[in-house]
């Protein structure tokens, strides 16, 4: 009986997911497509929870649905509001349909075949056996920040590169019109709650689902909410401070890596006794950097007077030069 219920639940979830994806991709209205995409993100979070991946469910709800949603919604303004009409000729459309269908069938066969052939290699055993020396008891955090710390370091580099591109290309978007009392009143409750939740997720990541990415995204959500509720009142961040916050994650990560290299001969090879503390330090710095990066990415470009930090130092240098003359 229970198994039947699970099956019904699974099938409903999958069908809903596919229907939402299909509608996201085929609707003619951009606004509608983005809204459906956010809904799909939330549904995916449920799917992750169902497939026993609570870390992912948290990340998907905050990043996949929340931050991407805000990003895409604010980007709609940048494009002319033409309806999404496919301009391909019927012939090309037909070819694309046939080719994607063929590929999908081929991939379905590959997945079916692969799952039937063998159980495959499972790494849970290895992870569990090494968990005591990783410094944390949440296996996902252990993989992210200890066993495969290289990946996470480079991931932070990817995030930084993306944000630097965003900052180089554009000025920030004009702020929204003030949003009304309801949102402002709500932020008084929500923002402190989000900040506390972010700190909790960061701390709890060591032994339960959570961690730097979820915490950073949660903090960015709080910043975005503040920006939406009080577009004009908001004090601009000090730009030098903002730059420091952007890079502090990678900086700390590399510094710890090099320090461990001097002790254990391998980059990022943590000494087991200190691993827990080191991971917490790295995660705290990474949380701040991710929050700064996502907030800046949401704003779509350089904040006001972004170059001034450069200009001030350059003018000091130039003045110094003149004095010498």
């Amino acid at each position: 009986m229970i198994e039947l219920l699970w099956s019904i639940f699974d099938i409903t979830l999958v069908l809903l997911l596919l229907a939402l994806a299909w509608n996201t991709c085929s609707t003619r209205d951009v606004m509608r497509a983005v809204t459906l995409f956010i809904a799909m993100g939330l549904l995916l979070a449920i799917v992750w929870a169902r497939l026993k991946a609570p870390d992912l469910a948290l990340a998907e709800a905050v990043i996949g649905a929340g931050i991407s949603g805000a990003l895409l919604l604010s980007a709609i303004r940048d494009y002319p509001s033409t309806p999404m009409v496919s301009q391909r000729s019927t012939l090309i459309e037909g070819i694309i349909n046939i080719l994607t269908l063929a590929l999908t069938i081929l991939m379905s066969w590959a997945v079916w075949h692969g799952l039937n052939m063998s159980d495959g290699v499972r790494l849970s055993g290895q992870v569990i056996s090494q968990l005591p020396v990783s410094g944390v008891s949440n296996p996902v955090t252990a993989v992210l920040l200890n066993f495969r710390a290289y990946d996470t370091l480079l991931e932070l580099a990817v995030v930084l590169t993306a944000v630097l591109t965003v900052l180089t290309l554009n000025e920030k978007r004009a702020d929204y019109v003030v949003s009304g009392r309801l949102l402002q009143g709500m932020t008084h409750w929500l923002v402190p709650l989000l900040v506390v939740t972010s700190g909790y997720l960061l701390w709890v990541g060591a032994h339960a689902p959570g961690g730097a990415f979820q915490a950073g995204a949660m903090l960015a959500a709080a910043m975005i909410l503040l920006r939406l509720a009080y577009p004009s009142k908001q004090q601009e961040f000090n730009n030098v401070l903002l730059r420091v916050l952007l890079v502090i994650g990678i900086f700390t990560f590399v510094l710890v890596g090099l320090w461990m290299m001097s002790l254990n001969d391998d980059f990022l090879a943590f000494t087991p006794a200190w691993a827990g503390t080191l991971i917490l330090i790295i995660e705290t710095a990474a949380t701040v950097s991710i929050a700064a990066a996502l907030t800046l990415a949401y704003r779509g470009g350089r904040p006001k007077d972004w170059e001034d930090a450069n200009r001030t130092s350059r003018s000091i240098a130039e003045n110094g030069g003149q004095d010498d003359q």
């Binding site: 998907e60 895409l72 993306a162 944000v163 990415f213 996502l294 990415a297």
Partner: peptide, 10 residues
């Protein structure tokens, strides 16, 4: 997931 959102922003 994090790389996807960064790439989207870019």
């Amino acid at each position: 997931i994090v790389v996807a959102v960064s790439a989207t922003a870019m």
